[in-house]
Every structure is written in structure tokens, then in C-alpha cells.
């Protein structure tokens, strides 16, 4: 069969596998070069999840973990478009998020940060993009939290994003940051992505997305790998 493959991962955007300032990479990065793989049907396909897998509260993190009240913290709207490299919307694709609560604490069992859990905040959510490639979450602005990478290490406020896209080649896990955060320039995970590219991880504050009397708005667009224009022959 012939089909247009996906463009390669842009290593001028993505972090290197070994980045010693982020200490855990030292024992976990492969030492041998990646082997190039010409796309076959295995790489041109991937899991497809539509609206049927998403519950009504999944995109509202201010409600999906609520037990007896509202979660604490600054309520925000996070929205944006998932696009490919040609600027085309990636429709009907799953966007999954997880994050710390307003105090910088994850619900995860191994998070030992001495900050309180919020009984009304879980911190996980998901939605499916619409015909314009748009997603939208209500949530609470996550707090910064300390980690053990180096002396006085703190992660900047961030929301983790996981995207499937149309094939396994477009799979992406990333993090969204907030504008003006003084911790960004001290954070090896943010700094691992090359300058000129990492700035794309910072969301924009938007007064137009902001809902009066309710929630501040942030826009975070995400660009997945696009396809080559010309079909190429898959290995026979």
C-alpha cells in the first residue's frame, strides 16, 4: 500500500534523551542512537478514542473530584487548539490532563510533599477535540512543588498533557506552563527543550477567554507532527 508518512520528530523542539541537569535521565537515557524506521501501517495507525469514552464531568476538574464543596484555589479555563504542522485541526482526538492541586500536591500515593490534599480536587481530566481541533478544561491553577533534583529545586506551575493524535507517530506527552513564572528559568525540565522551542510550552493569559466573575482564561495551542504531502512507498 502507499500512504504518506508522518514528518519526523523535530529534535530542534524536543529535549535530548540525555540531559544531565535533570538527574534521572542519566541512568534512563539510551546510550545508542535510535534506529530510523520507515513508516508502515503499524506507525500510520494508532488508538482512536472518541466522545463515547469521555464522561460529562471529565473536562471539569473543579467538579469531577468534588465531594462536599468547591476545590480551593484560583479557578481557570484552559483551552486551545490541537493542530498539525500544516495548521490543520486535529479533530476528535483525546486530550488527557493531570496536575497538582492549588497547594502543589498531587493525589498520587508517592507524592510526599508536605502540602495539603484537597478533598474536593482530584486533578485528572480528559476531553476530545471538536471540529476546529479545540479542547477546553475548567480547573484550578496548580501550585509549584519542591522536588529532589538539586538543592532548593521547585517545579514551576504546570499541567501535564497527553495527546494521542491520529497515529502512534503523533503521540505526545508534554507540560503546559504559565506566563511570567520566575521558576521557569531555573527548571531543568523546562530548560531541556531548546531555546526558541520551549517558549511554546508557555500558555498565554487571555482576557477574552476569561469568564467574568468566574475564571481566568489561558490559551495553550498544541502542534503535533504533520504528514508528508507526497505518499511514500511502505516497505514491501
Amino acid at each position: 500500500m502507499t500512504a504518506a508518512g508522518y514528518r519526523m520528530r523535530d529534535w530542534e523542539a524536543h529535549p535530548p534523551l540525555l540531559f544531565p541537569d535533570y538527574k534521572s535521565t542519566v541512568l534512563r537515557a539510551p546510550t545508542k542512537p535510535l534506529v530510523p524506521l520507515k513508516h508502515t501501517l503499524s506507525e500510520l495507525t494508532g488508538p482512536v478514542y472518541g466522545h463515547e469514552r469521555v464522561g460529562p464531568l471529565d473536562a471539569d476538574l473543579t467538579k469531577n473530584g468534588a465531594k462536599n464543596g468547591e476545590p480551593l484555589g484560583e479557578r481557570i479555563v484552559v483551552t486551545g487548539r490541537v493542530l498539525d504542522e500544516d495548521g490543520r485541526p486535529v479533530r476528535n482526538t483525546l486530550v488527557e490532563v493531570w496536575q497538582a492541586n492549588a497547594a502543589g500536591r498531587y493525589i498520587h500515593k508517592v507524592d510526599q510533599h508536605l502540602a495539603p490534599l484537597d478533598p474536593n480536587f482530584f486533578g485528572g481530566g480528559r476531553c476530545v477535540t471538536d471540529d476546529d481541533g479545540r479542547y477546553r478544561f475548567y480547573t484550578i491553577k496548580p501550585g509549584a512543588y519542591p522536588w529532589g533534583n538539586h538543592h532548593n529545586a521547585w517545579r514551576p506551575n504546570h499541567i501535564h498533557f497527553s495527546l494521542l493524535g491520529p497515529s502512534i507517530a503523533t503521540r505526545l506527552v508534554t507540560q503546559m506552563y504559565f506566563p511570567g513564572d520566575p521558576l521557569l528559568d531555573l527548571d531543568p525540565i523546562y530548560l531541556s527543550s531548546p531555546a526558541g522551542a520551549r517558549e511554546r510550552l508557555i500558555s498565554d493569559f487571555s482576557i477574552d477567554v476569561t469568564e467574568p466573575g468566574f475564571a481566568l482564561g489561558y490559551i495553550f495551542d498544541i502542534v503535533l507532527r504533520g504528514r508528508y504531502e507526497t505518499p511514500m512507498e511502505t516497505p514491501k
Binding site: 523535530d10 500544516d86 488527557e96 493531570w98 498520587h108 507524592d111 486533578g123
Partner: peptide, 27 residues
Amino acid sequence: MTMKQTPSQTVGPYFAYGLTAEQYGYP
């Protein structure tokens, strides 16, 4: 080609309740 790819970032240590919640016993 007009748009640049969004950089990858680590999944971190706390992905379990977001991505594999049932396996780890999260609601």
C-alpha cells in the same frame, strides 16, 4: 509546513492517577 511541533516533556512520577487510574486504584 507553517507550525512548529510542541516540545515533549517528561510524563513525570505522578502520571498514574491521570493515565492508568484503574490499575492503581484511583477513582
